[in-house]
């Protein structure tokens, strides 16, 4: 079995994405950028921060800023309910919590199926790696360049 798999992997290179939904957006983040998934729990609002920083929460003894992607991408505003998830994203030394309404799961997506982001899109398009289409148009998932996004966010936050 293993040689078959290797052959398959070589034949069809794949990338694993952590897929989730927030608001109306279906987003994907490379799974190597995700440490773990938590419940949203209570957030402590942080003054003098950009609006996409919802607040901070304690995680394994560290203070974790929580980002609202909807606000960051100017697509609305996230709401925290009892089922709201929070995934801990990491890129380099930056760690941040990101609010997700529902976790769709880990998906292995063939690289060949990843389409470039549509041209002439809005500001959100600059943070996209590409788009993968499912069976229907609604199942399309925007794959985020999480490292870039997080760096931009950090820059914006610091600039303030």
């Amino acid at each position: 079995m293993a040689p078959d798999r290797a052959v398959a992997a070589q034949a069809r290179p794949e990338q694993e994405f952590f897929c989730f939904r927030v608001g109306d957006l279906r987003l994907g983040v490379p799974s190597e950028n995700v440490l773990e998934v938590l419940r949203a729990g209570l957030l402590t609002p942080l003054p003098r921060t950009p609006s996409f920083i919802m607040g901070v929460t304690g995680h394994r003894g560290e203070v974790l800023p929580v980002v609202d992607l909807l606000r960051f991408l100017s697509k609305g505003e996230a709401r925290i309910g009892p089922r709201t998830r929070l995934f801990v994203g990491i890129t380099g030394s930056y760690v941040a919590g990101v609010v997700a309404d529902t976790v769709l799961g880990l998906r292995r997506i063939p690289v060949s199926e990843i389409l470039p982001p549509p041209l002439g899109g809005d500001a959100a398009a600059e943070h996209l790696l590409g788009v993968v289409h499912g069976s229907g148009n609604q199942d399309a998932i925007n794959l985020l360049n999480f490292s870039k996004l997080l760096q931009t966010a950090r820059q914006r936050a610091v600039a303030r």
Binding site: F18, S31, V34, L35, E36, V37, L38, R39, R85, V103, G105, L106
Partner: peptide, 8 residues
């Protein structure tokens, strides 16, 4: 959650 984290 556990399963998700386990998958991760």
């Amino acid at each position: 959650l556990l399963a998700l984290n386990a998958a991760l």
